[in-house]
């Protein structure tokens, strides 16, 4: 058992305790958390800074607004409902279209108007928020995923998670929905995480429920070797989020829209550790390297170059 711990330490695998103590606790000021914990705030902040995000259609804050919402959403045939302070993708509802009076959920099921309103009420009363406080519900543009990952995802929208430490992208993976995850791109719901080589944006092998896999369990296609176009632009987008929020250690979730290109979906102040399994690499040495060098790096461009140079899959 201790041998295993020593081996993991040698690879530089970051554990929860160390992540909490030396990274989130040390580099993420508590007062900055609301910026990323509330998606409405994050979105407004990003829009202000000119960072691409899915367009915000509206926000519901009070229960009385819920009844009139369907009218407000009349003009949009598809949209996404999210709790502003949800965690781990809980409570997100993707409406992909309509069928007479019903809303069509992305997973194919139909929702009545009441069911939609109930879901929004639940969001407002804090069912999905961290700690159960009352919440806001936001409605936004439904991302049309780039066909790039079509062969290796099952419904839903794959998203790209980049860990950005002190403005330097250190590790990345793409989260691919599976049948098990119900089309959601969340690892603990059963989505697949495939590591991405920071140097060139090419996918590596994947982690699925703590196991390393090479093929998508539903489509059977090889996950490895998919090249993400415009990788540098995506890294720059992620790296800019450091200035945006001031959080030293964050997870940036990016989606590739067919028409609008990379969009920032959300930011996470406590990103998970499974990304290490997806990349078959430990975070710790990379974080150390950033800590030693970040002061010398000027601007987004240099930070991205530094990352590409040092954090490739073979490094």
């Amino acid at each position: 058992m201790f041998g295993l711990a020593r081996q993991l330490a040698k690879i530089g695998v970051l554990g929860l305790n160390r992540r909490n103590a030396e990274y989130t606790l040390k580099h993420n000021l508590r007062r900055l958390y609301p910026l990323v914990d509330d998606k409405v705030t994050t979105k407004q902040l990003a829009q202000h800074a000119g960072i691409a995000v899915p367009e915000l259609y509206g926000v519901a804050e009070e229960n009385y607004q819920v009844r009139t919402l369907p009218e407000m959403l009349e003009q949009y045939s598809d949209f996404v409902v999210k709790p502003a302070r949800g965690s781990g993708g809980d409570g997100i509802l993707v409406i992909s279209g309509r069928s007479r009076q019903m809303y069509r959920n992305a997973n194919g099921s139909l929702l009545s108007r009441e069911e939609l309103c109930y879901h929004i009420s639940n969001i407002l009363s804090g069912v999905y928020s961290l700690g159960g406080q009352p919440d806001r519900a936001l409605f936004e543009y439904r991302v049309r995923p780039d066909p790039l990952f079509e062969a290796i995802s099952y419904q839903g929208v794959p998203d790209i998670r980049v860990i950005v430490f002190l403005g330097v992208p250190v590790m990345s993976m793409v989260r691919l929905p599976t049948r098990m995850s119900g089309g959601r791109a969340n690892l603990h719901q059963g989505a697949l995480g495939a590591g991405i080589d920071i140097t060139n944006g090419i996918t590596l092998s994947a982690v699925w429920r703590n196991d390393i896999v090479d093929e998508h369990p539903d489509t059977g296609n090889m996950i490895m070797g998919v090249k993400i176009p415009n990788w540098e632009a995506l890294l720059r987008l992620a790296a800019r989020c450091y200035e945006l929020t001031g959080l030293g250690y964050q997870g940036v979730d990016i989606v590739l829209d067919k028409d609008k290109g990379p969009l920032i979906l959300e930011l996470n102040a406590r990103p998970g550790l499974n990304i290490q399994i997806a990349n078959r690499a430990g975070l710790f040495p990379r974080l150390r390297s950033v800590e030693e060098n970040y002061k010398a790096l000027q601007g987004v461009e240099e930070r991205v170059v530094f990352a590409q140079k040092h954090f490739g899959a073979s490094a």
Binding site: L8, G15, V207
Partner: peptide, 22 residues
Amino acid sequence: LGRYYGYRLFELRRFKQLVKGS
């Protein structure tokens, strides 16, 4: 214990794949 930055016992199992992979 608040300064215990080491791995949690269950994490060893979780990251076991990594040792094999490397």
